[in-house]
Each structure stands twice: as structure tokens, then as C-alpha cells.
Write a protein that binds this DNA or RNA. Sequence first.
DNA 1: TATGAATGAGCCTTCATTCAT
DNA 2: CATGAATGAAGGCTCATTCAT
Lengths: 186, 186, 186, 186
Amino acid sequence: MTPSKPMRADARRNRARILAAAEEVFAERGASASTEEVAARAGVAIGTIFRHFPTKRDLLAAIMKDLRRRLIDKAEALVADGDPGTAFFDYFTFLVGSSARVGAVVSLLAEEGTSIEPGEQIMALDHTFGTLLDAAQEAGTVRPDVHLDEVMALLAAATHGALATAWSDDLRHRTVTLLLDAFRPR
Amino acid sequence: MTPSKPMRADARRNRARILAAAEEVFAERGASASTEEVAARAGVAIGTIFRHFPTKRDLLAAIMKDLRRRLIDKAEALVADGDPGTAFFDYFTFLVGSSARVGAVVSLLAEEGTSIEPGEQIMALDHTFGTLLDAAQEAGTVRPDVHLDEVMALLAAATHGALATAWSDDLRHRTVTLLLDAFRPR
Amino acid sequence: MTPSKPMRADARRNRARILAAAEEVFAERGASASTEEVAARAGVAIGTIFRHFPTKRDLLAAIMKDLRRRLIDKAEALVADGDPGTAFFDYFTFLVGSSARVGAVVSLLAEEGTSIEPGEQIMALDHTFGTLLDAAQEAGTVRPDVHLDEVMALLAAATHGALATAWSDDLRHRTVTLLLDAFRPR
Amino acid sequence: MTPSKPMRADARRNRARILAAAEEVFAERGASASTEEVAARAGVAIGTIFRHFPTKRDLLAAIMKDLRRRLIDKAEALVADGDPGTAFFDYFTFLVGSSARVGAVVSLLAEEGTSIEPGEQIMALDHTFGTLLDAAQEAGTVRPDVHLDEVMALLAAATHGALATAWSDDLRHRTVTLLLDAFRPR
DNA sequence: TATGAATGAGCCTTCATTCAT
DNA sequence: CATGAATGAAGGCTCATTCAT
């Protein structure tokens, strides 16, 4: 199951450029942006995109995978060197702040009957988040009766909300702060 | 300011059928569903849709207006005969429960550079919600430091979230209950 | 073969209004103007137009017939009380000046494979014009070797040209004056 | 200012086929002929036409440009090796003879509020024609009081007329001969 | 492999014409 | 007869996807 060929250097470079361009374009223009525009931004021909990603959906999925990777990396960093009592809150806040990127991609996939569950990329953070939640509950900064699925649900909500209604930095800060109070012990 | 001509009975009937069909179709398939599909579901020819709504956008906007009307009616009912201390919470819960409808429409309009602000139909509830919030704060069931814009932001968030990630009834109930705790005095 | 019914007064009135509106609309907007617009201008419903003229082509044809009638009337007036030596020139000049109306209608019919020969309405003036030409040649103001078909051809040409290229009054005057020199004895 | 990429052989071939097909189709059916029909005649898919000419208008404009080029080439040939005294008359005659092509295209563009002036492609011949006119007036074969704008106006007229009313070869010959007399010194 | 031209299904919209009111 | 809503066949154009170069 190892890849048959190690992929030529220029091919790998193209793949990366396409992914970067696609993330930008879709974040700016929404999922309905044309593949041609992605090609232009990436500086490759359209055929090259379809060689790497046989379908537009595949391209979208790849973006999400990429994004997820980065978000999880960030979480791991927080787990590694943060205070267990606040890492949970910090990560939640960080994610909502990243929503411009996250959300755009999410909503793309939400369009049309997509098999990739909208929000999946966030859901895949479950495990990561579970760790942070456990630690925070242990530290007593989060109510013990809060379940992970509720946390994820509120995360998805805040993420979508922030994107769709374009919260200002100030509003986002106040709203998330308020929302996080729901998790705090009373 | 009353319309000069009262609209023929069959026309009014068709308009309603189209609106209903469109709400369904767009909720199921997203805003990119074709007008043709709406026509099929409504049992009319495509031309009939364009006679009533000259543009796809117009159709979408009409759905939103309709929806808003219904949501506001509900709020007014709550205001009229509900307990001021709980009406706020009830309405919030009710709205999130309606999100399948609400959210679908919202996200449609969010696509493409639409002049109808995404979430606008919810935002238009501001006034209605402001009344409920004031009453609840007066009654002491909502923290006095909560602002209306934060409430609306969280409403939009929960609405979008519930839609995009297809919360189960149970999850929605638990999540909203938790979220509403953020509003309660500590 | 007399019409079975004498047509109600209001029906006749409507027919006239439609004809007038159609002439205006088509002159302004070209033949591709919609029947609906004609209806609006005439202040009737679209069904009424199709009752009087079962086809758009029929409406167009009716306009032409109307126009032809008026143009011929004018010629007859010139024949009756004009100088035989100049009536020919006057009429030619008059017709080109009317081209905004004439031409618009002509070009409508020219579009699509129309069975009504483009220019037909002008061609129908043949007889009328023949009379004027004969008189002028008799009077010695027009070369004897000029044939009627050439006159009609140049008339159609000037008419179309004036319309299609929107000659200014000044240019039209100079051009027609020059053109008419072709007819004069050398 | 040379195009950065020389255009692939097959693309150039298709472009030419489309142009040829379009000229035919529009000449036969008028400007309202469908792009699909052009595609069929050219033996390409509809998308190919829109790749080369993003808009129907663009296609029309391209035809005109093409045509103009050919007409001007012809003029230059006449200027180069013709008698200055007759080149003017020859060219005028030639153009009217080409009117089936010329005129069809002209009238297409005349439809709808087009920014490409109807007759523009002929008007663009101004300069070319100006040279011929000057030479002829110098040679004494054309009246000195004739202005270029009048010449162009009559050219447009004859062109349109010949097209719209389908002059026979004989009629065209006699009519143009007669018309050209208007330019001759008396 | 990359390129970019070609394909063609599908979308929104218009409009002549029909028909229930 | 008049009205105006409904119909549905086109038409222009877009864009994911394929394939010759």
C-alpha cells in the first residue's frame, strides 16, 4: 500500500501550489469559485489540477485534510506547553478566530449533497479536543457535566457563525468570552 | 399603499406553492439547487416561477421574508402570553430548533456577493429579541451585562451550527441548554 | 366575403391603439421588442393583442400595411396639387425623411426568414411612384432612360441607409440632394 | 505587442472555421441565428465558440473585423495598380457587390443597442475611401463638391439596400451605374 | 507530466403563444 | 371580448471534466 512512485519533485511542488491557491480562492470567493480560477492563481494549467485531484470535490477534501492537520498541530503545541486549566479555553478561542479559513472550506463542502460531512474536519478534532477537555475538567476549570459532543457542537456553531455573519474582532471576542462562560463551573 | 389589483386566486395559490416548494428544495439541496427543480416540486412550469420571482435571488429573498414573518409572529406570541423570565430562553430554543429551515435559507443568500446580508433575516429579529432580552434582564433571569449583539451572534452561531452539522434532537437540546447557561446570572 | 361581424366599437378602438403602440415601440426598440411591451404601451393586456393579431408577424404586417397606406396617401396629395416636374423629387425626399418609421418596420420583417419581402411595403409604392416618374420625365426634369425599378431600388437603399446609419438631418439633406442629381438630365 | 503564446494549431483552425461558419449562418439567417447553429455548421461544440468569443457580440465583432480587413485589402490593391480616375468607381461597385456579406453583418450589429456603430465597419473604410476620392477628384472624374461623408452615406445606403431587397445582378448593375452618375461632373 | 483546447450538460432567463378566469 | 397567469421551447453562457498536443 506504499505509493507506487515517489512523485517527481516538480509534481509535488505543483500539488502544494494548487492547494495553497485553492484555499485562498475558495476562502475569498466561496466554493462556487471555478477551478479555472484556482489554476490561474496557482500558475498552472487546469489540466494539472485535474491530474492531481480528479474531481473538484477531491481538491476540496484535500484542503480540509490540510487544514485539519494544521489545526491539530496547533492543539498539540498547546497541550505540550500550556496550562491544562486554560489550554482548553485558548484552543477554542483560537479555532473560532481561524474561522475565516475553516468556515469557508466547511461551507463549500456543505453545498451539494456532499459525502464529506460538513464540519467533519472540525469533528476530526474530537480526539485532540477530548484531551484538552479532560485536562481542564481535571483542573476544575470546566464543569464536569460537560460532554465532548456539546463542546464540539458549540465549536462548530461559533465557527460557522463567525464566518457567516462576519463578526468584528470585538464582537467575536465578547461573544466567545460569553460563550465560554457556559463551560465554567457555577 | 394596498396593491392596486388583488391578484388572481390561481396566481396566489401558485405563488404559495412555489414558495413552499422552494423552501423545501433549498433546505434539502442548498442554494445551488436549480430553479427547475423547484418548479418540478411545485408542479408548475419554469416560466411560472420567473413570472412570480423575476430572478432566482428574488425567490430566495421572498423565502427569507416569509420565514422572518413567521419567526417574528412566534416571538410576539411568546411576548404576549409567556413568562417574561423564560420567554427569552424559550424563543432562543425555538429558533435554533427551526434552524433547518432558517439556516438553509441563510446560507443560500450568503453565497455569491449578495446584497442581502447573510443572516439578515435573523438580524431583523433584533428588535423583537431586544424586547425579550430586556424583559428577562428585568426579571433577573439573564445577566445584566449581556448585550443584544452578543445574543444575536450566539443565535446565529447556534442556528448555523445546528444546520451545518445536523445535530440530533438530543444533541441540540443538550447543547442549547448548555449554551443558555452562559446567559444566566452566576 | 364581407366580414361576418362588424367588430364592436371597443374592439376597433383597441386595434387602433395596439397598432399605434406597436409602431412606436418597434421604431424605438427594434423588432425584437417584446409583445408584452407593446401591450403595456397600448394599455391593454397581452391576450388582447393576440386576439387581434394571432401572431407577432401578423402585427408587424399590419403595421406595414398601415404605413404604406399613409405613404401612398401623401403621394396622391403631391400628385394632385404639386408641380409634375418636382413632385417626384419631393416625394423621394419625403420618403427618405420618413425612414425612421419606415425603416424600423422594414428591418423587423427582414429578420428571420420572413415571407413578407423586406422592402415590400416600399415596393408596393411602385404604382404610385410610377406615376410621379412618368410625369417628371414628361416634364423633362428626370432623365428619360431612368427605369422605375432603379428608382425604387435607390429609394429602398436611401431609406435603409438613413435608418441604419442614423444620418443627421444635414447629412441626409446633402446626401439625398446629391443622389437625386443622378436622375437629372445631364 | 505580439501575443505571448502563438495559439495552438487546432485552436487556430477552429477559430477560422467558426468565423467562416458564423459569417455564413448570419448572412443567411440574420443576426438572430443561434450560436448553437453556428457551432453545428462549424462542427464544434458550443463551448468552443464561447472559448474563442466570450460573447455573441464578440463573435459578431470578429466577423466585422475580418470583413473590414478583406475589404481594405481590396481597396489597397485597386489603389496600387488601378487608374486613379476609375479606382473610386470600381471600388464602390465592388463593395456594393459584396453587400450580401457586408450588409448581413452590418445589420446584425445594428440590432439591439450595440456600441459598435451600425455600419462602423464600413465607416472604418473612410480613410481608404478618402484616398480614392481625392485621387478621382484630382483626375477630374468626380465632382469637386462631393464630400466624403456623402460618399460613405451613399455607400452604406446602396449596401443595405442591395442586401435588404435582394437586388438581382442586373438590377444592381444598373442601379449602381445610375447612382455613380451623381458623382460625375455635369 | 503539463498544457490548454474541446466537450456538452446544465443553468438562468426571455418571450411568443395558449387558456382559464 | 378582455385579462393576465401559465406554459415551455429556446437562447446565451458557465464550468467540471476529458483528451489531443
